[in-house]
């Protein structure tokens, strides 16, 4: 050491305490083992009190409230966000359920409408078919009646023609015309 250290060099008149194990390097440190050098104790305690007091003040008034605030805010924000997410999820679930319900309603309604339309159309077709059938039936009946009257008329004409033919044949064969009564008898006999 170039210049004497005022802290490790005891002031004049002070008891020079020499730790036995360290006397071999008097030029490096004259005096006691530094951590036990009592002459610096007061100053060290004063500086410690000042430094630690300042540190305590800063931590107590500034640092710790701020960090506590940061951690608290973060926890609050996380809880808020989670709550919001929960609410949104519930909302989404509700929307899903509503969608499903409305879809099912729409499907049901569509099915009902289709069924109703189908029934209506079927009823209409059935009605038309019945009307047509009835019309056809009446026409059929009319036709049948016409046919029957025509047949009867035709049959009536056949008797007349047969009578005339028979009377003509008999006149040619016998030379005289048969009387009407016998002709009718003969006609009746052949008709059955």
């Amino acid at each position: 050491m170039a210049q004497p250290n005022p802290l490790t060099t005891p002031p004049p008149g002070a008891d020079t305490k020499v730790v036995p194990g360290h006397v071999e390097h008097p030029e490096a440190h004259s005096g006691a083992f530094p951590p036990f050098e009592t002459s610096g104790f007061l100053a060290q305690i004063i500086w410690l009190a000042l430094a630690f007091g300042l540190l305590y003040y800063l931590m107590d008034k500034v640092a710790l409230p701020r960090i506590r605030g940061i951690l608290h805010d973060r926890a609050e924000r996380l809880r808020g966000d989670l709550d919001k997410a929960q609410a949104m999820k519930a909302e989404a679930d509700a929307a899903g359920v509503a969608y499903e319900t409305s879809l099912r309603d729409a499907q049901n309604k569509a099915r009902d409408i289709a069924q109703a339309t189908r029934n209506e159309l079927a009823a209409e077709a059935e009605g038309k078919r019945k009307a047509l059938e009835a019309e056809l039936n009446t026409k059929l009946a009319a036709s049948e009646a016409t046919i029957r009257s025509r047949t009867e008329a035709a049959m009536g004409n056949v008797r007349g023609i047969a009578g005339e033919t028979a009377s003509a044949i008999v006149e040619r064969l016998t030379g005289q015309a048969p009387d009407q009564a016998s002709l009718n008898r003969a006609l009746d006999a052949t008709a059955h």
Partner: peptide, 15 residues
């Protein structure tokens, strides 16, 4: 008295 008062490197490190 015997007490040396000084701003030491120890104090500097503490601050």
């Amino acid at each position: 008295g015997h007490q040396q008062l000084a701003f030491t490197q120890s104090a500097l490190y503490m601050f």
